[in-house]
């Protein structure tokens, strides 16, 4: 049902000539559960100038279990435009273990349909359960290591997501473990507008 929503959304999206067909084809494949075919079509639509092609591709990436690629693809557009895409955006964050990122997006899903709202409520409860535990220094170090590793691979947007998570988790601890290091990395990563990894 959520996938069918994506089809409706794609139908209502105005894109460049030629890109529309691929958006619709991608949405149909997505609805049928053929997420690899959907990804290819959304990518083609994106290359042909469909403004939301990348976001739809990001949704397909979540379904393909490529959470980090999805976070990276979603990073090119801010959340808040569409609740359905934001649901996939939250899923991508959750599956990449970016729990605060997921929580922030889930909190903003105010206009979602009943199905998405139910699923979002369950996911937010799960995120709350994870965040209820005290974050250890080891955990924050793990996020920082991910941030540095992704930066070294040239994946700035993804690296920034990990560093932002580390900074926010560290700020919840009395000793603010890792906050300074994460912020220093973010300064290096975020001066220009966040861009996804060029494929």
């Amino acid at each position: 049902m959520i996938a069918a929503g994506l089809l409706l959304l794609a139908l209502s999206t105005s894109a460049a000539p030629g890109a529309d067909e691929h958006l619709l084809a991608g949405a149909a494949a997505f609805r049928d559960g053929r997420f690899d075919a959907a990804l290819v079509e959304f990518r083609v639509a994106e290359k042909l100038g469909a403004p939301d092609g990348r976001a739809y591709a990001a949704a397909a990436l979540v379904k393909l279990g490529r959470a980090e690629d999805s976070v990276e693809a979603f990073a090119s557009s801010p959340p808040g435009d569409d609740d359905l895409l934001d649901w996939y955006r939250a899923l991508a964050c959750y599956e990449a273990q970016l729990y605060l990122c997921a929580d922030r997006i889930l909190a903003g899903l105010t206009r979602a349909g009943p199905k998405v709202a139910t699923e979002a409520g369950k996911l937010r409860a799960e995120v709350a359960r994870v965040l209820a535990r005290e974050t250890t220094a080891t955990t924050i170090d793990w996020y920082l290591a991910r941030c540095e590793a992704r930066r070294a691979e040239g994946r700035a947007a993804l690296a920034a997501a990990y560093c932002r998570e580390a900074a926010e988790l560290g700020a919840r601890r009395p000793d603010r473990h890792g906050v300074a290091r994460a912020n220093a990395e973010l300064v290096r990563l975020e001066p220009p507008a966040p861009v996804g990894r060029e494929r």
């Binding site: 690899d36 990804l39 290819v40 990518r43 083609v44 042909l48 393909l64 494929r199």
Partner: peptide
């Protein structure tokens, strides 16, 4: 265009797509 997408997916290590 499809080839460009394919190359990018191959570079990302995703054989299936």
């Amino acid at each position: 265009v499809y080839r460009g997408v394919a190359d990018a997916e191959a570079q990302a290590g995703s054989r299936e797509t």
